[in-house]
Design a protein around this nucleic acid. Structure first.
Lengths: 194, 194
DNA sequence: GTCTATAATCAGATAGAC
DNA sequence: GTCTATCTGATTATAGAC
């Protein structure tokens, strides 16, 4: 149970990862997963108790993958504010939505097993942003009246909200403009005594 | 057809408004709507071609109501930056999500009739924020390097992203912290030459 | 305009053979 | 471990009486 090395199990999880990003949790049926993975009904229910657990396994893998990408952007060799700019301006498929936080408005978030990987991903970014801002602050690079923790929360909110803007306007540029605003603001509150 | 004065039609739309906020579009079935409204199957399909059109009518009303609230916050009698602060810090039920933009990640956004009211609401706020920032800028109250349009996009993104943070962390405070960051930053980029 | 009855399809899951 | 067959209830809608 939940042991790797099983071909169909891996195919099922891979298909679920793709469908969760594309359609979300509620709109993804076990039937869809089986069709995409090439597995039969029995394989899914042999490896997992049900749909929720398949999704939890898929989300855990997605969070792990995305956190690794984030950690690559926040390399210690880069100056702290450059790490933040790299995260803000990284390339994104805005219309697809955030791979994990796209589930934020689904009933799935009321289930701890599904919410946890999403919260871990978002929380990890927020912690990385905050640590970088505290580093910049310690070097005297942050304007007075700006709390690193609050600014970090604001920045992750701009990114997640940017996805929302792109989706509702059906326009990638809507997200880019919000990110532009964040970069301008970051520059303004860090230049003063840099 | 879509004529007001019909009791059941109004009950159906009212029930749909409640359910769309609570559960979203895909998770709201005509059956749920009928149960909540007290109407029978026939009433729904007499007044509307189907589920999509009921939702479109409900969303249009929701957008109209919320835009009226926004316009109340952006009263011309208030100084421009105070209008923005009033919008940012208004009370919200963060865990319920944005009444309109909570649908942003549903397939419904690919249907123009459903996306338009949501886009109109978000776009209206963004236009109000931008006009207020341009007013502040004209009075010399905006730091150099800050474009009113980009800052407006950033601010609406913080609010919409704040809802996402609250939902994924299942914690209202997560949104408040992001809003706090936005207020601090707004203060920092407007004080310099105010 | 409103109702109840019915239908076709799909959702999520189980049974049991191989 | 993997498969096909089957099951129960929900979804979205249609039919037709009142």
């Amino acid at each position: 149970m939940a042991r790797p090395g099983s071909s169909k199990r891996e195919a099922i999880v891979a298909a679920t990862k793709a469908l969760l990003w594309e359609r979300g949790y509620e709109a993804t049926s076990p039937r869809d997963v089986l069709a995409l993975s090439g597995a039969g009904q029995g394989s899914l229910y042999h490896h997992f108790p049900g749909k929720r657990e398949v999704a939890a396994a898929a989300l855990a893998e997605m969070a792990e993958e995305e956190i690794a990408v984030i950690d690559g952007l926040f390399s210690p060799g880069t100056p702290p504010l450059d790490r933040i700019r790299a995260y803000l301006t990284r390339e994104r498929q805005a219309l697809r939505g955030c791979r994990l936080a796209r589930l934020s408005n689904e009933s799935a978030m009321e289930e701890p097993a599904l919410r946890e990987p999403v919260a871990a991903y978002v929380g990890h970014i927020q912690a990385r942003l905050r640590a970088s801002l505290e580093e910049a602050d310690a070097a005297g690079g942050l304007a007075p009246g700006i709390a690193p923790a609050a600014l970090a929360a604001m920045l992750i909110a701009v990114v997640e909200g940017g996805y929302v803007l792109a989706r509702v306007h059906w326009n990638e540029a809507a997200m880019r403009e919000a990110i532009d605003g964040a970069v301008q603001v970051l520059d303004a509150v860090t230049r003063p005594r840099a």
